[in-house]
Simulated scan of single mutants.
Amino acid sequence: MSHSISPHENLSGSVAIEKIKHITEGSGTCFFSTHVNGDTKSRPMALQEVDTEGNLWFLSDVNSDKNHEIFSDSDVELYFMNHSKYEYMLIKGKATVSQDKALIEKYWTDFANAWFDGKDDPSISVIKVAPNDGYYYETKQNKLVAMSKMIFAAITGKSIEDGGIEGKLEI
């Protein structure tokens, strides 16, 4: 039986925030998961920014199910995947919703016109996710090297380092 392993490197504070910025901004979108009556509901969301404190920012319709679910339970999970680079991240945090015009102005993009009637649309809200913790996995080498190592382990049955690194994130 082959075992491919990844070294662990747990990160905290500003180092964890930099890792969050690197992986999430490389991905650009995530599955944004809320909790309702014991069920998890997920939908794709475009990330606007990770700020210097590690908060993740999104635009959303104030009348969306997601926003109503956040008002009921502010615990959310964000799942980011940049498959082309083998970078993956889970962020757990607390979400808050705001209709602050300055924040809407800051995070507005032309891409948002697909969902809203311009940045003055009264249904626009900004969601801030303040991360508590998370987990990441990324390749240390390029994707081809990592895949080659995993294939070698599968064929030979030998344990090898899979070319990745993973660990907990504490903010």
Rank of each mutant, 00 (worst) to 15 (best):
M1H: 11
G163L: 03
T34G: 10
E25S: 14
P122S: 08
E69Y: 11
K66L: 12
D39C: 05
T40Q: 15
K168I: 12
K158E: 12
D120K: 13
I104P: 09
T109E: 09
K106D: 02
N113T: 15
I171G: 00
V15H: 03
S4F: 15
T109D: 08
G118M: 08
D73T: 08
D162T: 05
T52R: 11
K143I: 07
S60R: 06
K21L: 11
M89L: 10
F58L: 04
D65P: 04
K143D: 01
D120Q: 14
A16D: 02
F111G: 07
W108K: 10
L47R: 01
D65H: 13
S98M: 04
K21G: 10
K119Q: 12
Q99F: 00
D120N: 14
L56S: 02
E170Q: 12
S14F: 05
V36C: 05
A46Y: 06
N63Y: 13
K85S: 14
S33N: 13
T52C: 08
M89H: 01
N113I: 09
I127M: 01
I104H: 09
D110R: 11
H8S: 13
V50F: 01
S2Y: 14
P44G: 06
F111E: 15
I104G: 04
E87M: 12
D65K: 14
Y79E: 08
K149H: 04
I104C: 14
D65L: 09
A95C: 04
P7Q: 12
V97G: 00
V62K: 14
C30R: 01
Q48D: 14
N55R: 08
H8L: 11
E49A: 15
D73K: 09
G28E: 00
P131D: 08
Y79C: 13
Y79P: 05
S60D: 13
H22C: 07
A154N: 10
I17C: 06
F32D: 08
A130C: 10
A95P: 02
G38S: 09
Y135F: 10
A102G: 09
D39L: 13
K143A: 05
W115C: 02
V62L: 13
E161S: 11
F58K: 04
G134C: 04
I160G: 00
Y86R: 15
M1Y: 10
F71S: 00
H22L: 15
T156E: 10
H3N: 12
S84M: 09
T40K: 15
E18C: 07
E49F: 04
G167N: 05
S2H: 07
V50A: 04
S74E: 03
P44C: 02
L59I: 08
L59V: 07
P7L: 11
G54T: 05
H83C: 11
S84E: 15
L103V: 03
L90S: 12
G167D: 08
